[in-house]
């Protein structure tokens, strides 16, 4: 532990794409152990926010501090922050030319200096955790979407992150595969993994979230525990969004 009680501290962050302001004065603190779910309409800046936390985008104003380390242009601190974060993408982003096992061992071997046997043992351990140890020698292209996303989650776990970011982990999946991925994430939540999940799966949010955040047009409009969030949304925009999404 770095000694910081907060996994993520975001204060007054702004982010522009050219003239377009994608994030407006975002302030958000995520203590260790919290499961935060972010929702909001398309284009509201959810991905941008999550990507800023992993420095896949650089924020323009304000401060982002991850486990006591401020994100700046300094390569060493970016590397340090990334080593504490596991990032799961909507499109899985597995390496198609490598086997599942190689996908899982690449980071531990090259970035962490583990020996191959150590890395493979660890990879098999986490493949069992996501219930697909038998797929270790296949290429990602031979797996179903749900299996690919579980491999992507295992790839993060192999690096033993302190917190995980999920950007719409089930949006690219066929409906029948959503549950198997959400179950894996739920297991992690139950075990106490700190996580920020962007999702529109409200059933999952109710079960997993300690806190809900609603974003619209680059701003955080609501931040509340799930029971309060779902029963008494404060803003009209959030109410409208929840009505739309819960109808389906």
């Amino acid at each position: 532990m770095q000694g910081s009680a907060n996994a993520i501290e975001i204060s007054c962050v702004g982010k522009w794409f050219g003239d377009y302001q994608a994030l407006k004065d975002i302030t958000l603190t995520v203590p260790f152990g919290e499961r935060l779910v972010i929702c909001g309409p398309s284009g509201s800046g959810k991905s941008t926010l999550v990507r800023c936390i992993d420095r896949l985008e650089a924020h323009d104003t304000g401060r982002i501090v991850v486990d006591g380390i401020e994100l700046t242009n300094d390569a060493a601190s970016i590397a340090q922050v990334r080593s504490e974060i596991g990032m799961v993408f909507q499109q899985f982003n597995l390496f198609p030319h490598l086997t599942v096992l190689e996908n899982l061992t690449l980071g531990p071997i090259k970035a962490r200096g583990l020996s191959r046997p150590e890395a493979e043992a660890r990879a098999m351990h986490y493949l069992e955790r996501v219930h697909i140890p038998e797929q270790a020698d296949k290429k990602p292209g031979q797996l179903s979407g749900g299996q690919q996303q579980r491999v992507a989650i295992a790839r993060c776990l192999c690096l033993e992150p302190k917190l995980m970011l999920f950007d719409e982990p089930t949006s690219a999946l066929d409906p029948e595969m959503i549950a198997e991925v959400l179950d894996v994430i739920l297991d992690l939540a139950v075990e106490g993994m700190t996580m920020v999940v962007v999702t529109h799966e409200m059933g999952f949010a109710r079960k997993a979230a300690d806190r809900m955040v609603f974003m619209d047009k680059g701003e955080i409009l609501e931040s509340a525990p799930p029971e309060e969030f779902f029963t008494a949304p404060k803003t009209a925009r959030c109410r409208k969004f929840l009505n739309q999404i819960l109808q389906h």
């Binding site: 896949l56 499109q91 597995l94 198609p96």
Partner: peptide, 27 residues
């Protein structure tokens, strides 16, 4: 090569050279 591949390499802690060598160039 899709941008997501570069990003995945970055998030698992690869340096620029490692990302090129093990992820981007082989593809």
């Amino acid at each position: 090569i899709p941008k997501g591949q570069v990003e995945a390499g970055q998030t698992i802690g690869l340096t620029y050279a490692q990302n090129m060598r093990y992820v981007i160039l082989p593809q």
